[in-house]
């Protein structure tokens, strides 16, 4: 076994991208059910928002006045943001110990944040897209049944918009506590009991 090379030079090389990617994938695969629940939470929030948005457009094609619906959309967006944030904060804070451990193994703060960023991006993208499609789809059917019409372009726009909102929220809600945990002294992160 060889001697460590140049111990005194304190330059840390960040591991290649795939190390963080594999860690994120392993975390999603192994904790599949836990992550699925988080993801469903995101999807439901986004579905609610997307369906309200679609109904607003359907309503305005009939009555021209959509002030009431705008309020409903705004409220649904707020609820969805709180829901998504809550799911992610929970799922990250129950892993502070793991963060502390990885720090002890020599991970840089940025590596830890990167893993959580990747995980949240994957969860957020799939959850939000599924939710948005579901919400827009159901509302479209409901709107058609009541005689209103919603253009395909509008549906597409709402789906994309809701997916992006969901993804951004998921990533922010995951990365904020991850940064906080990564900056903690390792001993403090290890002490955290959930």
């Amino acid at each position: 076994m060889s001697e460590p090379s140049a111990r005194a030079q304190f330059k840390n090389v960040d591991p290649p991208f795939w190390v963080a990617w594999n860690q994120a994938l392993a975390s999603i695969r192994v904790r599949f059910f836990r992550q699925l629940i988080t993801s469903v939470g995101i999807a439901l929030g986004i579905a609610f928002y997307a369906s309200m948005q679609t109904l607003r457009i359907a309503e305005s094609s009939l009555t021209k006045d959509d002030t009431k619906m705008q309020w409903l959309v705004a409220t649904s967006l707020l609820m969805c943001l709180v829901g998504v944030t809550n799911s992610m904060l929970m799922s990250v804070s129950e892993r502070f110990r793991e963060i502390g451990t990885i720090k002890c193994l020599g991970a840089s703060d940025s590596f830890i944040v990167r893993v959580f960023f990747l995980e949240a991006t994957i969860l957020g993208a799939t959850g939000s897209f599924a939710g948005a499609t579901l919400g827009v789809g159901l509302s479209w059917i409901a709107a058609r049944a009541s005689g209103a019409d919603v253009a395909f372009a509008d549906c597409l726009g709402i789906t994309l918009g809701a997916t992006v909102i969901g993804m951004v929220m998921t990533v922010l809600a995951a990365v904020a506590p991850a940064i906080q945990a990564a900056k903690m002294p390792a001993a403090a992160a290890l002490r955290v009991e959930v």
Binding site: R7, G106, S108, D109
Partner: peptide, 18 residues
Amino acid sequence: LTARELAFLRCHTIGYIF
């Protein structure tokens, strides 16, 4: 040490068992 240098120290010089 900066955070990064500390990570280097933990990585190369010290092994942890809990």
